[in-house]
Nucleic acid binder design. Structure first.
Lengths: 221, 221
DNA sequence: CCTCGCACGAATATCGATAATACATCGAGG
DNA sequence: CCTCGATGTATTATCGATATTCGTGCGAGG
């Protein structure tokens, strides 16, 4: 009734993306445009736009008139994508440090604050969105705009795979805290330390914290 | 006007992509959905779908109701993307060699043949499409499906930048011939040679053939 | 029993029209 | 003269309806 049909497409997009990354919509699930339109209470065009964008993000595969399916999760590809992400973000450190202004630092602090808020609320999806926003805001300082969507895609798929593998789920507060050294290195204007902090951060995303003995720092709980 | 309206969206997509990569539509050009619809003789929906996909490929930027513009070309980002592409394709060599079957080799031979045909006809765009098809077909053997769109994007942007910088234009026949060593290394089932051939191929994409090769070796994962 | 062809159903692709919205222009007031 | 607000226009966002296409199941023929 008073449902705001404005931004229907963006709403559908966010909803489907959340459900796919959170693995509520499992790989292979078939999505139909008219079916989603009726379920979500909007027209086919809005669903269509959302599915087009999700295809661009690699979360669904559109097979013409045969329907749209949620893409599969592949361990090898996930590891390659994480390695790619690691390379992109660590290499960017040398460009980020000399370009970071005080406004950038303030924005990143704000992102980290909202991330801690999501962790305190136990809101897993808000945590994912805040993490993506933090890493993209950091990378944007590197001034490589054409690479931002590539990194965004890598980050999104990293999260998806991490959430799919149950042993990769961890305490949200610890995840938020793991970003502090990155920001500290940036505030110290130390490019080497920033690259190392970022690399270590990414190394600990999918590795179980107990698998190696070199994990001697903050212990959750 | 009697043009078949079937596949209108795909036709618009290919047309706009070609014109952007070939730099006929220069960065900053403003595209309107209804304007393109009238020019191309189709409806707004078809143009809209094409623009959505082009945005997903990073060739245009949609700014809501403020219009859609052709994205800028950035030298730094282009070099980073090429380096990223080099890493992806050389790393894939070790996965490609043990997985390549005879059918794959035949397909790649066919791709190379069509590339030579495009070179003989002097068809620059057909050459670009054939090159993309060859590299993607080769990478597909690596069985990392989630990374294929990332590589596709890198290849597309590499071509766009190469065509934008006029000194990077070369003889089409020489470009086609430069792919032969890659296929030869694959047929020899030599992963190291394949990686080297691919790396050399990519190093000579934007470097003038007479300059000395400067190796930009980065820390391997 | 197997294969081929055809109608049927389901889903997308496309269309035209309308609503919503951001930008530019112009006019009034200070 | 400058600033601010109302209005007009251009453009996207969304909707409902229709055309097109692909898979499927059934029946006839070999």
């Amino acid at each position: 009734m008073s449902e705001p049909r404005r931004q229907a497409g963006a709403s559908v997009l966010r909803d489907l993306r959340r459900r796919i990354v959170l693995n509520e919509l499992q790989p292979g699930t078939v999505l139909t445009e008219l079916g989603l339109a009726e379920t979500l209470g909007c027209s086919q065009a809005a669903v269509r736009e959302a599915l087009l964008r999700l295809e661009g993000e690699g979360l669904v595969a559109r097979a013409g008139r045969q329907g749209t399916t949620v893409t599969a999760l592949d361990r090898d590809a996930a590891e390659e994508i994480l390695a790619l992400r690691r390379r992109i973000e660590t290499r960017a450190a040398a460009r980020i440090v000399p370009r970071a202004g005080s406004g950038d630092l303030a924005s990143l602090e704000a992102e980290l604050t909202s991330m801690r808020g999501a962790a305190r609320d136990g809101d897993l999806w808000a945590m994912v969105e805040a993490d993506i926003a933090f890493h993209l805001a950091l990378f944007r300082i590197a001034a490589l705009p054409a690479m931002e969507p590539i990194l965004a895609r890598c980050i999104l798929h990293t999260h998806r795979f991490r959430l799919w593998a149950p042993w990769h789920r961890r305490k949200l507060a610890a995840t938020a805290a793991r970003h502090a050294p990155i920001l500290a290195a940036l505030e110290a204007r130390d490019a080497v330390a920033l690259a190392e902090a970022m690399g270590h951060h990414l190394d600990t995303i999918v590795e179980p914290p107990t698998s190696k003995t070199k994990k001697t720092e903050e212990t959750p709980g």
